[in-house]
């Protein structure tokens, strides 16, 4: 292992991308209208693409001869470092949209900062991903507004999702020792900086969407340390089925 902390840092974000990409892929063929089915599949595809770039780099740092697929398919839940937000079930379209918006308002500003990383490889992955997340954040933000300021039913539904997901909003900008060390070493970003930009964006969109901000700022945590919700086990059972049932094959 070249650098354990850098490996852990990359895995945190790679796991976020993979698990959210997997969740979005569940929508494929079942969207509310064809254009949005395509949009969700497209975002899922971008996220899987980002996960691949990050796992490829992580596996090189690891120096154990492992591949991107070993990292995605052969680790158990406690090794996954994604936040609890991304493993939350899709729910209705509004819940998927708000989960996505909470994630996009992180990833967009995260990659924007990561583009300045002292690690060139990370900076280049960030530059490519940032372009994608700009579009994702516009898409999910526009839908929060459309649903919030649409009909009475859509307003009530998305408000319900805002309330449900609010306690999963902040884990993604909580700072652990991996983040601290990464920032200190120069290849990581300042989550404090991202937090402010992100909160402003969320506030502006909720206002335009005529949605109210929940009062409690309690944040569920654990994902970044490998303590997940019950959902992750099922996500992995689905994701990893073939690799687990028929180990050692090429696909």
């Amino acid at each position: 292992m070249q650098d354990q902390n850098k490996f852990n840092y990359i895995i945190q974000q790679a796991d976020n991308c993979l698990i959210l990409g997997q969740r979005l892929a569940e929508w494929c063929g079942h969207g509310p209208v064809l254009e949005q089915d395509i949009a969700m599949t497209n975002i899922s595809l971008d996220l899987i693409g980002q996960a691949r770039l990050l796992y490829q780099y992580a596996s090189e740092i690891q120096e154990e001869g492992k591949t991107e697929d070993d990292l995605a398919y052969l680790r158990d839940a406690w090794d996954f470092k994604n936040v609890l937000l991304v493993e939350q079930p899709n729910g209705d379209f509004g819940k998927t949209i708000f989960r996505q918006f909470l994630y996009d308002t992180f990833s967009c500003f995260f990659y924007e900062e990561l583009m300045k990383s002292t690690d060139e490889r990370l900076a280049s992955i960030a530059a490519k991903s940032h372009k994608e997340t700009l579009y994702h954040m516009k898409w999910s933000g526009d839908w929060v507004i459309r649903l919030g300021d649409g009909t009475e039913e859509s307003h009530n539904r998305i408000q319900q999702s805002v309330n449900e997901l609010w306690s999963y909003k902040d884990e993604i900008i909580s700072i652990n020792s991996v983040d601290q060390e990464a920032e200190k070493a120069g290849y990581g970003v300042s989550l404090e900086l991202i937090k402010n930009k992100r909160n402003e964006k969320i506030k502006a969109v909720l206002e335009e969407a005529t949605l109210s901000t929940p009062e409690s700022d309690y944040a569920h945590k654990g994902g970044k340390e490998g303590t997940h919700s019950e959902y992750l086990g099922y996500i992995l059972a689905d994701l990893q089925f073939l690799q687990r049932a028929y180990p050692g094959n090429q696909w």
Binding site: L18, A25, C28, G29, D37, I48, E68, D238, W251
Partner: peptide, 26 residues
């Protein structure tokens, strides 16, 4: 085909399957 996207056996296959089903929607 969407039935196998979440269970695709590698990330490369998963990406290809997503792209394919997206083409069909197109």
């Amino acid at each position: 085909e969407a039935n196998w996207i979440t269970r695709a056996p590698s990330l490369r296959r998963k990406a290809a399957a997503l792209a394919k089903v997206q083409d069909e929607a197109g």
